[in-house]
Computed example of a mutant assay.
Amino acid sequence: MWQELIVAVIVAACAFHAATKYLPAAWRRQIVYALARRGFNQDKLAKLFKTQSSCGDGCGSCGSCETPAAAPDAPKDTGVARRVIQLRVQR
């Protein structure tokens, strides 16, 4: 009896982890909205399922309504050399 209960808890935890990590973002958002309609805290669920707020909810996180920053006149040297990886295609 106890073994079956422990296995059920482990399987449920693994399924929950897989749902929070590997499901597509649209499915995770639907899960968050469905659970929020049933009384769960939407902010905590969104953080747990790693879903980002959309532009439609007015959160301002997407930055689409902000004014763009002024472009600098001269490019800055970041010290990072850019490398190009050339691929050789064999046919």
Rank of each mutant, 00 (worst) to 15 (best):
V9K: 09
G79N: 08
K50Q: 14
F49C: 03
K47H: 06
L5G: 01
P68H: 00
K47C: 03
T20E: 05
K50M: 14
V84Q: 11
Y22I: 13
D57T: 05
F40H: 15
A8I: 03
W2G: 11
C62F: 12
A69K: 09
G56L: 08
L23E: 05
L35F: 08
R91D: 13
V80D: 07
G63T: 04
W2D: 11
K50W: 08
G39D: 04
G60P: 03
A19N: 11
E4W: 10
V89E: 00
T67K: 03
T67E: 06
A13C: 14
R29N: 12
I6Q: 13
R37H: 01
T20P: 01
A81H: 14
P72L: 04
Q90L: 12
C55V: 05
F16V: 15
S61G: 10
C62G: 01
S61C: 14
T78W: 00
S54N: 02
K21W: 06
Y33E: 15
R91V: 12
C14R: 09
K76A: 09
W27F: 04
G56Y: 02
F16Y: 11
R83A: 06
S54C: 04
E4A: 15
V84T: 11
R88L: 13
E66K: 10
V9F: 08
T51Y: 01
A18D: 08
C55E: 02
K44Y: 09
S53C: 13
L45G: 02
V89F: 09
E66Q: 05
V89W: 02
L35Q: 11
